[in-house]
Design a protein around this nucleic acid. Structure first.
Length: 215
DNA sequence: AAGGGCGCCAACCGCTGTCAG
DNA sequence: GCTGACAGCGGTTGGCGCCCT
């Protein structure tokens, strides 16, 4: 069992005061980042080193953007999430001035809902196909999406793949998702030709979870 | 005007990865 | 190879403010 990083009895918790912020900023200006364990004592702070690190990285760093996410940043987060999943630090690394915490919070509070409202499952970036199968009240979700939005979801994985060609690191893409995606694209083809029923090309491979949606 | 519900976001917690001794 | 210290990550929580009834 690892020892705690600090003696919790003698550390403050909760929101940081201005004085605490100033002490941390002053200390880091002079000594630079790092040695978080010894920093609190050296800087005269009654805080855990971990807490100091978090406060600096997520709030006090001078290069942080504090404004709302721009549309292109949103798009990038969505594409990177399709590629990387909940690897917030990797995603944030591609957004200058944004922290992993900011990206995570923005995803959970805005983007998840935004995708869901367009009928896109925020977990796997696929359309929630059940909505297509059952023309009940749920189907409104899908029908309210514009064609470009539908296209966006169905091509999420291939778009993300194209990011790789633009210099993203070598990542292990989920091949299963691509195959499922191609089956969804097949459905799109049917839609284009006016077919109201879903037909599945059995030569295309679907995961069991996706197959369940069609039953 | 009040208070209950909800969303946002800063901060915390627990865990993992890495590296030095 | 083992152990402990440290940094970093992702999930979760709690407090605050806004909105609606």
């Amino acid at each position: 069992m690892r020892k705690p990083c600090c003696d919790k009895q003698y550390t403050n918790k909760g929101a940081w005061s201005r004085q605490e912020d100033q002490k941390l900023i002053d200390y880091i200006r002079i000594h630079g980042e790092g040695c978080w364990r010894t920093l609190p004592q050296a800087a005269g702070l009654l805080r855990c080193g971990k807490s100091c690190r978090l406060r600096w990285i997520n709030y006090l760093r001078p290069d942080l953007k504090r404004d709302n996410f721009a549309e292109d940043e949103e798009d990038l987060v969505i594409k990177l999430h399709a590629l990387l999943g909940n690897r917030w630090s990797l995603i944030a690394g591609r957004l200058p001035g944004r922290t992993d915490n900011q990206v995570k919070n923005y995803w959970n509070s805005h983007l998840k809902r935004k995708l869901a409202s367009k009928g896109i499952d925020p977990n796997n970036h696929h359309y929630m196909i059940r909505n297509l199968c059952r023309p009940d009240q749920n189907s409104q979700v899908f029908s309210s999406a514009t064609s470009s939005e539908k296209s966006h979801a169905c091509h999420q994985v291939s778009d993300a793949g194209s990011c790789l060609e633009n210099g993203l690191p070598d990542l292990n893409l989920d091949a299963g998702s691509c195959l499922e995606n191609s089956a969804i694209s097949a459905h799109q083809e049917n839609q284009k030709h006016g077919d109201s029923k879903i037909t599945i090309d059995t030569n295309r491979v679907l995961s069991p979870s996706t197959l369940l949606l069609f039953r």
